[in-house]
């Protein structure tokens, strides 16, 4: 994927009027998350990491966002969303059960652990989960498609898009308080917003982003 906002780093605004102290504290803490499990055991941790790599394939040559650790912390704190589909158990149990069931499916299909599968085989299993084509006693009446949508995709993507690296990727402005924005109309960019690379003008965008 081409770099749409070359040189843009939302963290470069950390010490500007766009970030209040509260935002600095919150983002600093997020960036300090250690890439190891507190909630999951080693086996489930390996499965979770492999799933995260497929749901959000992160580009090489860039600092890796510890998505699995962010999901793990949500469960360690049992930080819930405020609703639960009646067909699902509470989130900790759903994750434990879903990861074990996915491992069982990998073993049944290929005789190896999920994280050792080729990525195409991992994707095929995840698609089967998404379409509700996985079942068996390990699922214990928990619908695989619902687990995929409400837990796998929901928790993993919420974690990734809470990280500044993802904001750089999509050109989001990030924290904005007390300074907000001034230029509201089409194609108007405040000097503290990401500059998009237009064909033939990538260097200009990089220059603008690096000198924000």
């Amino acid at each position: 994927m081409p770099d749409r906002y070359p040189g843009y780093d939302v963290l470069s605004k950390r010490n500007t009027a766009s970030w209040n102290d509260a935002s600095r504290q919150v983002i600093d803490a997020r960036l300090a998350i250690v890439d190891s499990p507190e909630f999951f055991d080693e086996r489930k941790w390996r499965t979770l990491r492999a799933i995260c790599d497929r749901i959000v394939p992160q580009p090489a040559g860039r600092a890796v966002v510890p998505i699995a650790a962010m999901v793990d912390r949500k469960l360690a704190d049992d930080h819930r969303d405020g609703y639960r589909d009646a067909r699902l158990p509470p989130q900790r149990e759903a994750w434990r059960r879903g990861l074990a069931a996915l491992e069982a499916a990998a073993q049944a299909r290929a005789g190896v652990a999920f994280h050792r599968l080729m990525t195409v085989a991992q994707d095929a299993l995840l698609r089967d989960m998404q379409c509700g084509r996985l079942d068996g006693p390990e699922w214990d009446d928990m619908p695989a498609d619902l687990f995929f949508r409400e837990r796998v995709a929901h928790d993993i993507l919420a974690a990734y898009y809470s990280h500044p690296v993802s904001w750089n990727e999509i050109g989001f402005g990030g924290p904005a308080s007390p300074r907000g924005y001034v230029r509201m109309y089409f194609n108007r960019r405040d000097p503290w917003e990401a500059a998009e690379a237009k064909a033939g003008h990538e260097a200009a965008a990089r220059d603008a982003n690096e000198n924000m």
Partner: peptide, 20 residues
């Protein structure tokens, strides 16, 4: 109040409710 979607869910009612 931080400029952050995750952190600010402290404003929401996140106690469990069961939906069917």
């Amino acid at each position: 109040f931080a400029s952050d979607e995750t952190h600010q869910d402290k404003l929401f009612w996140t106690d469990e409710r069961i939906c069917d």
